[in-house]
């Protein structure tokens, strides 16, 4: 039986928009706090959403995050239209990054984004097509810790 959706929302992300980068993640965090999700889970989701959102801003033309809250889990999907990832194994390696020098100087592109997402997720799925884009599917189990 598929569990009922408690809440769902879409957040659009614009590639290259450094001024508003992070705002969707802040909204997601506020929503989860408001629903009464456990503080530790909100903290993990905030890291995941931020890293995923920044990846879209840094490497894609545009994309979106989709937040689904179920009674027993939170599902976060991120899809972008962008350059895609050529070698996912390499992209998952801590410290590996294709970021430009300019982006690194801003403190991004440390090669920690995807590893940080995986570390904080219970389920982590990534698919990517070079020249098309990347899709992430993240699940965090609530284990009754949904306030």
């Amino acid at each position: 039986m598929r569990s009922k959706t408690v809440f769902q929302q879409e957040f659009k992300i614009k590639g290259g928009d450094f001024v508003n980068a992070g705002e969707s993640s802040c909204k997601i965090r506020n929503i989860l706090k408001e629903i009464g999700i456990d503080a530790d889970i909100v903290r993990r989701l905030a890291i995941i959403a931020y890293e995923a959102e920044m990846n879209v801003v840094l490497y894609a033309r545009h994309g979106a995050m989709y937040l689904f809250v179920y009674p027993d889990k939170i599902l976060l999907k991120i899809k972008d239209m962008g350059q895609g990832i050529e070698n996912i194994d390499l992209a998952m390696r801590p410290g590996y990054s294709t970021a430009t020098e300019e982006i690194r100087e801003m403190g991004f592109g440390a090669g920690m984004g995807l590893p940080n997402i995986k570390k904080n997720a219970d389920v982590f799925k990534i698919t990517s097509k070079v020249g098309k884009g990347t899709a992430l599917e993240i699940i965090i189990n609530l284990n009754g810790k949904n306030g």
Binding site: F18, V19, A21, G22, E23, S25, C26, R29, R43, A46, I47, Y50, E51, M54, M106, G107, F108, A110, M112, G113, N116, K119
Partner: peptide
């Protein structure tokens, strides 16, 4: 490094950095 701060800072920390661009606000709020 913003990912490092996201991963390792804790609630209530004072954050010392040389970055001054708007994204630091999102990190601090999150």
């Amino acid at each position: 490094l913003l990912s490092d701060v996201m991963a390792h800072s804790k609630k209530g920390d004072i954050w010392i950095t040389l970055q001054g661009h708007p994204n630091i606000v999102a990190v601090a709020i999150l």
